[in-house]
Design a binder for these strands. Structure first.
Lengths: 227, 227
DNA sequence: CGGTTGTTTGAACTGATTCAATCTGTGTGG
DNA sequence: CCACACAGATTGAATCAGTTCAAACAACCG
């Protein structure tokens, strides 16, 4: 039985027996590196991918060579199986350890433990809430707000505790661009601008929030939607 | 018992007894007009809103007065209850008839019919798939592609049949702008441009697809994700 | 060291916004 | 049936945020 998976499920409110059953599914341990896709776009998504450590992203590539990252998965989060949506590929942002379970095996357990479907529903709804924020971000906010919003969201999602003063930013500027719908050149200018304005400090990729209030204000970030 | 709801649920693969139970929940019939919000942002989302006719949207307003539409609901689709995500408001695009069920009543039925949670999960996953497309749209595609993509998606989702030659477009240009992350001025120019290029014809709001292949090509539209 | 990946900077360009005015269609009340 | 109001569509001109292209620089690593 996998301990981390079990305690994560328990923390999400799943009953003991259901959590035990899920954590006892046959899990393939796997490692995903940032270099190449972990799962190619348009391949079957008939498995649950649980992130043990690291950071994964879902992405869609476009004909014009453009690339949009449409979702992130931090440790403790899962890419749930989906019959329909095999549009996106999966790639590690940083080297990640993941646990992979077959959808068939999942289905078997779900037949015995009905709360699991409700949990998956909850998780999917949370994804939706995050998607809404991202849509608002790319659709309506300016460059600075978008990047700030992403940094704050990332800090929130990667900490267990609610409070933080800095972020061990895992993204390249190109990846920030792929999330916020810009070019890496502009992301670079925005980051430099945020630093010049005294809202953040940078040490390599590490980011220190020197004025989090103001950053939250100007990005419109309110952590409610993360739960 | 509500017939339309029942047959919709059956068409989505729900078993007879579960569909019957759901369609027998106490449903408040209600009408939503396009003038003012049907549900204000930040109010409880402890109800399921089933669209009988018309068209609803979920929207988020921004401090700067900007507004982003983050989801649409065509007849037969539902806005599911959500504990967390009360960020968005709900508004009718055109006059709509809806059926509203309390989350409590839903929960009671779900306790007896476990397949329902799985169905909600499926629906939520479909929303996510649509969100991904929209994120790709606003994040990476140019103005023309965005608008074309929306028109094609709308045509698909509003028809039962897969094939269509025209769309009784329900949107104002401002609403198209709110969905695609632009200004109404530019939407106007894009529509004029599409017509000038011979890809569509317009008669009032009605849109005739005179070159659907090319429209699909340039917008990158592939209907897979709609199911 | 050489190779590779990522960051930074400058200059020119452009797609889309902004602001403002005009036009069109529709509904309403007199 | 006209006058008026109002919402939405259309157009033009000026402006700007962000892109594109290109080159230089820094950091890392086997």
């Amino acid at each position: 039985m996998n301990e981390f998976l079990y305690s994560t499920l328990r923390a999400q409110g799943l009953a003991k027996d259901a959590a035990t059953a899920l954590a006892n599914i046959e899990l393939r341990k796997s490692e995903a590196g940032p270099r190449r896709p972990f799962r190619e776009p348009r391949t079957a998504r008939d498995e649950a991918i649980f992130v043990k450590s690291g950071l994964l992203c879902k992405y869609i590539s476009e004909s014009g060579g453009g690339r949009q990252i449409v979702g992130l998965r931090f440790p403790g989060e899962t890419i749930l199986p989906s019959r329909r949506d095999r549009r996106f590929g999966i790639q590690a942002i940083v080297k990640s350890q993941v646990l992979v379970a077959d959808a068939d095996a999942l289905d078997a357990v779900m037949a015995d433990h009905h709360e699991i479907a409700a949990l998956f529903y909850e998780q999917s709804q949370r994804d939706n809430a995050i998607n809404h924020e991202w849509m608002l971000n790319t659709g309506r906010r300016d460059s600075i707000s978008r990047v700030s919003h992403l940094l704050l969201e990332t800090a929130h999602r990667s900490q267990k505790e609610g409070d933080f003063a800095e972020l061990n930013n895992p993204f390249t500027q190109q990846q920030i661009a792929d999330i916020t719908g810009q070019t890496s050149v502009n992301v670079n200018r925005v980051l430099a601008d945020l630093e010049r304005r005294g809202l953040i400090q940078r040490e390599g990729r590490r980011i220190i929030f020197t004025d989090r209030r103001e950053l939250e204000r100007l990005s419109g970030f309110r952590p409610d939607y993360l739960q």
